[in-house]
Each structure stands twice: as structure tokens, then as C-alpha cells.
Amino acid sequence: MIDLVEAIDEKCQGKDNRRVLVEASICLIALARFDRLDQRMENAGPWVAEMDSIDVEIKSRIDKLVSIIQEILGEQEDETFYIDRFYIRLYSTPEPDHRYRYYPFLIGPIVALALLEAGKSRPDARYVEQNLSFVHQTIDTYVEEISDENPYISEQRGPASIGDHTWIAECLQCYAEYPVNEIKQSAVIRGKVSRKVQKKMVLFTFFVIVLIGATVLSQVTSGWTTTIWSAASALLGATIAEMGLPHPLKAD
């Protein structure tokens, strides 16, 4: 699994984004579920001493996979790909006659599921909240698509069509179980903003902070100067009056 994560990281440049998303998501789901299983079993065996190193390793792999997914989602101008699917050819199907078959992976549900699983495994704002618009878009699409009157009709025909439904049902269930309290209001806002816009917002915020800081500083400095000048003037006046000399700043 770890080798696979590194392989995906190395090869993701120049590859079909849909393929990278599906491969990274599959790995992420597997790691996140293993992680949760691992956490439940942490008191169960003699290998507890190794838990810390396993923990760090899994977390870094999850971070890496989420960043790969997030980068593609952030750069994607056309977001319609979330209803698209990526087909994996079943080369390993035993019957030669069946090797022309493909198994479909619905990109939206599988990516959303992966992010949700990662978020459930290790609560971290980056995993779900920053990609919340994508998750919501996917959920909304399939909730609207599937109703009592209109069962979802997969574009994929044949026995493999149930694969589409598996990913959708898994994604919906994972979303329904996601702890809503962990989705903070600020994160909801952040999730609707693309990474490019986020960068611009950071720069704009920085500029505004610098501007406000400069204004406040100048006001403070100006106030202090006036105060110091007044105090110095009063002290000088008092000293001169004490000495019985005429005040140099006052006319007769």
C-alpha cells in the first residue's frame, strides 16, 4: 500500500486526472478504514509498541493522498467530471471471453467518499471542509437524481451497473454519518472557495492588515508626538517660571 501511494505521487504528473483521482481515492479509503480498524484494536495485541510509528506513517500517507486529490480538485476548471466515471479494464478476469469488460468507478462519489473517510479517520479541516463544495455538489447531484419515481439509471449497462450504485450508496451513507459539528462555519465558507481564489484572498487580507496597521501606527505615533511635545513644553514653561525668566514661547 505504501509503495502504491509513492507510485501514485510520482506518476501523477501528466496522467489522466480521472485516473489519479480514482487510484488515490481507492488507496485513501483503504488506508482510512485500516486506520480506524487499527485504532479500535490498539489495545488488543502485543504490537502496541509499534503503534506510534504506524500511526505517523499512516497519517503522512493520508496527508499525501489528500493533497494529491485536493490539488487536482483545485486546478480543475470544469467540475462536471464529478459525474464522470473511469473504467478499469478487468485484465485479470479469468475467462478470456470476459476480458473486454470494464469496471466503472464513478469519480464524484468515490472521491467524496475518500475525503469523508479520511475526515472520519482523522478529524482534520483539510480532509473534508476545504473540499466541502465538491462533496456537496456530489451529494446534491445524486440525491436529486434518485427518487421514488426515478431510480438512478446508470449509463453503464450490464451486471457492472451495480458498481455505480455501490459507490453512490457508500458515499451517501458516509456523508449521512459524518459528524456535522466538526464542520465549522468558517470551514463551510472556505470550502466554497477555490485554491486560486483562496490565495488572492490571503494576499488581499494581508494587504488590508498592513494598511490598517500602518494607519494605526501613524495615528499612535502622531498622538505620542503631540503628547511628548505638550509635556516638554509644560515642563519647560514650569522650569522657566520657577527661575523667574520670561517664557520664550509666549509673547509679552
Partner: peptide, 21 residues
């Protein structure tokens, strides 16, 4: 989008999952 909206979406997601089942 509010937390209440998210809760509504979660209920809708569960309902849709049941339809598939």
C-alpha cells in the same frame, strides 16, 4: 450553506441510500 443545511443534506443522503437499498 449553514450547519442546518448540512443536517438536511444528511437526512436526504440517508433517504436516498435507502432507496438504492
Amino acid at each position: 450553506v449553514s450547519p442546518e443545511d448540512i443536517e438536511e443534506k444528511q437526512r436526504a443522503a440517508k433517504r436516498t441510500r435507502r432507496l438504492i437499498q
